[in-house]
Structures are given as structure tokens and as C-alpha cells.
């Protein structure tokens, strides 16, 4: 399978902090543990003899498949984090993400309406933050997660300054 990137060539991408993998791992663990726990209930009940249906193989197969899928996603997390990148150009900001489903986004500075910085509990513990750009379009959804707090603040100031310089109407 040809793995040609969709990004425009000749861009020096800035990568997000590798510590962001931990944030994603925490999210992964929380979501999957709950799902697995719920799916494992029939297995426990069948094993303890409280339920006669479903058969043991089915009760075991469902959580096993889920576990496999979850492990597959787990293996992808470091690569997914590695695929997130951003680049500040003269007139616009580029953001890319994704391995299988790739997305490269360009947001002209003059189009930015406002910039958000947010941090969840895990991010905050690791000194990371998530930067979000808003334009007049709801479809933009420009997000750079896993920025070190200092870099996030620098980028926000930079974006605001550049946005002001190239301010355009709607």
C-alpha cells in the first residue's frame, strides 16, 4: 500500500510533546476498562453458574474481541501522537493529524476569531495544554493537543499578534 502523505511537501512540522501519549493512554484506559468491565459481567455470571445462557465461548469471546480491538488501538496511540503536527507559515497555520484517516488543515491567520487554551487534569499534571482555534465556521475544528504549557502560551500570543496584523472581516 503506498503510504504517500497528503501534506504539501517541504513543510517543517513541529511535533507535540511525547508526554501527550500518557494523556491519550489515560483516556484509553478509562474508556476501555469501563467497556471491558461491563462486557465481562456475563462471563463472570456464566462461570459462577448463575446464568445458563449464553454459552461459555460466547461469553468469553465478546470481551476477548473487545480487548483485542482495544489493544490494537493502544498500539496505535504513540504513532497517532507522533502524526500530530503543526507549522506556522507566513500567512497561515497548518495542522495535520492521523495515520489511517489523515487530515491536513490550513487556517489563515486573518480568519481566526479567537484562540482557546484548555487543559484537562492529566494534561495539567504533565504540564501540557490543548490549543484550539475558532473561525467563523464550525467545521474548522482546529485543535493542537499536547503542547507544553510554555509553547502553548507562546503560540497563542503569536497567533493573536499575527491575526491582528492580517485581520479580515468575515
Amino acid at each position: 500500500m503506498p503510504t504517500e502523505a497528503i501534506d504539501p511537501p517541504g513543510i517543517a512540522w513541529l511535533r507535540v510533546s511525547p508526554k501527550y501519549v500518557t494523556v491519550r493512554l489515560a483516556g484509553w484506559a478509562l474508556a476501555n476498562l469501563i467497556v471491558l468491565a461491563v462486557l465481562a459481567v456475563p462471563l463472570v455470571l456464566v462461570l459462577s453458574g448463575a446464568w445458563t445462557w449464553p454459552p461459555l465461548w460466547l461469553a468469553a469471546a465478546v470481551p476477548a474481541v473487545m480487548l483485542l480491538l482495544a489493544l490494537g488501538r493502544l498500539a496505535l496511540i504513540p504513532r497517532q501522537v507522533g502524526s500530530i503536527g503543526y507549522a506556522e507559515r507566513e500567512d497561515d497555520l497548518l495542522i495535520r493529524r492521523g495515520i489511517f484517516f489523515q487530515r491536513t488543515l490550513v487556517v489563515p491567520y486573518g480568519r481566526m476569531q479567537y484562540v482557546d487554551i484548555g487543559a484537562g487534569p492529566v494534561e495539567r499534571a504533565l504540564g501540557l495544554c490543548t490549543l484550539k482555534l475558532h473561525t467563523a465556521s464550525a467545521g474548522t475544528s482546529a485543535e493542537i493537543p499536547g503542547l507544553p504549557a510554555g509553547e502553548g502560551a507562546r503560540l497563542r500570543e503569536q497567533l493573536s499578534a499575527r491575526g491582528e496584523a492580517r485581520l479580515a472581516g468575515l
Partner: peptide, 23 residues
């Protein structure tokens, strides 16, 4: 407002991309 290129695994096999304009 902004522009995005998007590509899924199947599209990559055929070497095509989707281009989305945000308004």
C-alpha cells in the same frame, strides 16, 4: 474560512483526497 485535506485508507489506495472548504 479554512481548508482541509482529508484522506482515508481506501482513498489512499486509489491516491485520491477529499478537500473540504469551511464556510
Amino acid at each position: 474560512q479554512s481548508i482541509a485535506l482529508e484522506q482515508g485508507p481506501l482513498a489512499r489506495r486509489f491516491r485520491v483526497v477529499d478537500l473540504v472548504l469551511h464556510t
